Computed example of a mutant assay.
Amino acid sequence: MKKNFSPIDVEAATASDVPDIARLLSWAFGFGKARSDEYIAHVGLGSLRLLRGEGGRPDACAALLETAHVFHGRSVRAANIAHVAIAPERRGQGLAVPFVDALCAEAQGKGAAIATLFASTRPVYRKSGFELAGHEIVYEAETASLPAASKLAFERVELDDPRIAKAYAAKAGREAGLLSRGPAHWNELWCEPTDALAAYLAEGDAAYLILDMGEEARLDVRDWYAASPEAARGVLSFLARFRSVYPAVRWHGGPQDDLVAAIPDKGWRLAHQEEWLLRVLDPAAALRQRGYHVDAARLALRIEPAETALEIGIRDGASEVGEATGGCPTVTLRAPAFVQLFTGFRSASKLAQYGQVIGEAADIRLCDQLFAGPPPWVAEHF
């Protein structure tokens, strides 16, 4: 929730910058030229921001993607800061923090209440006000362990079938943290080798799968949705049909994952787990935009070092946020703890155990209720 943005000049990329951007992506992430060109096309040149050095050549680049994260059925306007790449000769010179600060300033100026990213090194981004906010989890299961019996029928559809986007929106609405995907997110989801991709939709739009069959060792589920436990078993049964070709299957899922819950026995494991980070750019707007799992509540948050507290009022499920006027239950916390509380990554009670939330026991319990809900996660790496 840092607000002292560094006065660094960041520029939008132009077509003449593409070769330099491709080199930065190659040096930072091992992208080949084809992958760099593909990524630039997917996110769009207009989304790329540059920090130029002497002679005008880019010293750093990143994508600034306008999006939203969904928290309990409501979208919070956001910016994904993706693929921050700094030239090797300029690393370790303190460029990352002012560069990211400038990106956050631009995002806030365009109406974003929060900014999110995946960090290659957390201490650097914590200096810029980012904190752990949610999970990215990849599960792996043996295809031989998946249930084989289901009456749910699937048909093959186009990758951009609008029913898939509609079903994904339904999935995002019942979870916490998932992205309101924009064109850049969908483009990356459908990235090459597209001839190895196939999308399948279940009858009644009860489930869908986007499968990547380009790996010999395993089947990769790039995206999926199941509307019910029965649909989740149907998804697993459909994946079980690939057991003669692929010994294993992988998918992104939440900490409380519907597909894991539908597997009847052992046979699955965590293949990858990482946390994404969030910075609150506008606390009042962020609190006003998110959803809550209570119908009525009143609580003030004093987010240090701010001198005033923000009061959250919930009535009939609708929220109002403004400067606290007194006479309201109040808890005090610092900005890093507020990030984790805001997303539901940690509860007020747990943060109080760490000494990061201070208040009366009853007020901390009320804070737990206000921010309760499913644990936050994302279904892709941005």
Rank of each mutant, 00 (worst) to 15 (best):
R315I: 06
K151M: 02
R250A: 10
R241W: 00
E89Q: 15
L45S: 09
A115L: 04
I81F: 08
A153Y: 00
G53I: 11
E106S: 01
K110S: 07
V260F: 12
E155Q: 08
W27S: 12
A202V: 02
L310A: 07
G204T: 12
A96P: 05
G214H: 08
A82D: 15
E140Q: 13
L366E: 08
P98I: 01
W186N: 04
R288Q: 12
L341G: 01
G56T: 15
F71I: 08
R365E: 11
S26N: 03
L236G: 04
L287I: 07
G254Q: 13
D9K: 12
L239Y: 04
T194A: 15
A62W: 06
Q340C: 02
R269H: 06
P162N: 01
K350V: 13
C104H: 06
R122G: 00
L351Y: 02
A148K: 00
H272S: 15
L48R: 13
V245I: 12
A15H: 04
S26P: 00
Y246S: 11
L351F: 04
A82Q: 09
R279P: 02
R334L: 00
V97C: 03
D220T: 15
Y225F: 15
P58I: 14
I86V: 15
A248M: 06
V124A: 15
I40S: 14
G173Y: 03
I21Y: 02
G53T: 09
K2Q: 13
